Lab assay of single mutants.
Amino acid sequence: MQRVNMIMAESPGLITICLLGYLLSAECTVFLDHENANKILNRPKRYNSGKLEEFVQGNLERECMEEKCSFEEAREVFENTERTTEFWKQYVDGDQCESNPCLNGGSCKDDINSYECWCPFGFEGKNCELDVTCNIKNGRCEQFCKNSADNKVVCSCTEGYRLAENQKSCEPAVPFPCGRVSVSQTSKLTRAETVFPDVDYVNSTEAETILDNITQSTQSFNDFTRVVGGEDAKPGQFPWQVVLNGKVDAFCGGSIVNEKWIVTAAHCVETGVKITVVAGEHNIEETEHTEQKRNVIRIIPHHNYNAAINKYNHDIALLELDEPLVLNSYVTPICIADKEYTNIFLKFGSGYVSGWGRVFHKGRSALVLQYLRVPLVDRATCLRSTKFTIYNNMFCAGFHEGGRDSCQGDSGGPHVTEVEGTSFLTGIISWGEECAMKGKYGIYTKVSRYVNWIKEKTKLT
């Protein structure tokens, strides 16, 4: 034993070699072989497995989906700052455009905790909710729209109204504003409101030439003092309507412009014939205590009207009353817009006519005020429907199939267009061939041609 100890002390290297040989010859039971080890760690190889990531292109799944990435790591994937920024906006807080917040056709661009709407022409605001041009839906104005110097929408209202708090709607500024039905039992019968379409306001006024200088022999019209197929109006439903009495009662109609003036057809009036105007009328054979009678003290036909040349060209006249009318729910003026808007309103496509005229061709006159909704007829169809001249200051309205029309005794009465609950004068009943005849239409004086003249002559002093 002493000898062994001496050998170990003198030859430590020998001992180490012996131990190493023993270990190498022993069977290893701690580690699995290569094949079995792979069965336990069965993990798919990654895209760049075996390579240094710093030297390969980034992978979106590896960089940002398996674990949260930084902007720089995302930049490695896209290799483009702009594309990385677009991805980053949604990656950080989701897609803010998912709810489609942009209105009126706006395009949404996502941002971090926010979004941006790219608005089409005519709109602005956070969600493109603000109209900035009158060309689109009248700028959301209830009545009139004008573009300011910086191309912003400025709404306005006709006389007797003021802008509401929203700067879009119009509200009454006087007790009985024009064009409004205020009798409670008839307010439910107000005709369907007309909503502004998209309009090209630059070209809204037709490029028409008034044929002022045409000389033409007097034409022989049949029954051209021209509501057939209409309905009984309720008291106060058309408070701007008046009836004219002269040699015979209810020979023509008219509309209240203001307390002192009536507008009617020029062919209705004769110099030297006494005319009485009755406002607030409903049943011409009954006294309903809503009527107001006034005498006409002055007749002003349009300066281009000449019955000797043509009885229905420039067929418009103004009547001055001896005493002002007292405005109330049964006696209310009709609204008159400017030339541009009167023309736009007419193009809405349908209007209402009213009167006490004959209820059928050569038949009896109506006792109760009649009204009828009539569609506008395109000019080409209008011209083809008659052998008589249709001037540019006239328009056609009615039904091709016949059966409904204005008729004798309705002449001078109103053709009105309702705009968001307020009625505007767009025409004056003038003439036609018979009444409600198939293929024939009622012919009306186009008020847009005469609004400046009306307003100039009827100013209240």
Rank of each mutant, 00 (worst) to 15 (best):
I262R: 01
C134E: 03
V416Q: 06
S448C: 03
C382N: 02
V263H: 00
V242N: 01
L41P: 14
G280D: 01
V153R: 11
G403A: 09
N203H: 10
E27H: 08
V263C: 03
V242W: 00
N104I: 00
R226G: 13
K347C: 03
G357Y: 13
V248A: 07
K446F: 01
K387M: 08
T389P: 15
C382P: 02
C141F: 00
W240E: 00
V195R: 12
V174C: 05
H282P: 06
N38G: 13
Y312F: 11
E76R: 15
C119H: 00
C117E: 01
G58E: 05
R373C: 03
S423L: 09
I136R: 10
R404V: 07
C141L: 00
S411C: 07
K51N: 13
S182W: 09
F71Q: 15
F121P: 04
E165S: 12
M8F: 11
V248D: 07
E27G: 10
V451K: 03
V77N: 15
K68S: 07
H303V: 06
E286R: 10
N104K: 02
T209Y: 09
A380R: 07
S70P: 09
N310H: 11
E142K: 06
R46K: 11
P12E: 08
Q237G: 09
C141V: 01
G236D: 03
C396T: 01
C170N: 01
G363L: 07
V174I: 08
V368L: 10
N328L: 01
V199H: 13
F348D: 08
R449Q: 12
C108W: 00
E231N: 14
A265R: 02
M437I: 11
N328G: 07
I344M: 14
R191I: 14
Q370W: 03
T158N: 05
E129P: 00
F123K: 05
G254W: 00
S99C: 14
D338A: 06
V419T: 04
K387N: 15
T194W: 12
C396M: 02
P197E: 08
A279K: 01
W240V: 01
P324G: 04
E142H: 06
I429S: 14
T186H: 11
G412D: 02
E67I: 05
V195F: 07
N213W: 05
P172G: 07
E61H: 09
E208D: 12
C119E: 00
E35P: 12
E54W: 06
M394R: 03
N48H: 11
W118C: 00
C141N: 01
L23I: 12
T225S: 07
Y371W: 14
E320L: 04
K137Q: 12
F31W: 10
E286S: 11
